[in-house]
Amino acid sequence: MIDQIKYLILKEFKLELRNKYALGGILLYVVSTVFVSYLSFKKIIVPATWNALFWIILLFASINGVAKSFIGETRGRLLYMYTLASPQAVIISKIIYNSILLLVISGLCLLVYSLFVGSLIQDIPLFLIVLTLGSFGFASLLTMVSAIASKSNNNFTLMAILSFPILMPLLIVLIKLSKNAIDGLENWDLNYLMVLMFINVIIIALSYLLFRYLWRD
């Protein structure tokens, strides 16, 4: 199992490096979205707006970045993978790989966004923790939704409409916590951090349990 996961992740990295335009495309997507919002907003000084816009950009970038993880796979390659590895190994490796991908995306997003739109964050460590946990959560949920959407006919539209409503609990906690980080509150709200981790654990557990029903045609 661990070996399988390791090899599958290595496989993802190799594939990603082999066609660099996909990764380059998603990174450019982040930069240009941020630039568009910079041109429309100039500097944002209201914390709530800054926060909301940041998460919306990140949400769309994540959906675009993760969507290809199953939708982009060819049928033949999936079949080959399924004969070699267990379904649990497939989903866990995809989740880990997408988490790393989203960490890169969200790091870049934060950097470019702070540069153009202005940085208002007062409690940077907390914001980074929230961003990391958010990336894990987005990655695991969107990987699973991508697997579901890839089975249907119009999968890119479906990817968005299936994921938005179930992303809400995650997103709302993330926005609340990152607002705290921006305002630089004295005490970290451990309750919400716990809730965030709890949601992450639930998503991963559900993906682990349910993916085996999803993978074979």
């Binding site: 609990p169 709302i172 906690v173 309750n191 809730v195 949601i199 639930i202 559900l206 029903y213």
Partner: peptide
């Protein structure tokens, strides 16, 4: 496929309505 989504969504929905009122 829809059974998988239904379970996935229902559990997250329950989380949502339990988490939300605390916010």
């Amino acid at each position: 496929i829809s059974a998988v989504y239904n379970i996935f969504a229902f559990v997250l929905y329950i989380v949502f309505i339990m988490v939300l009122p605390r916010l």
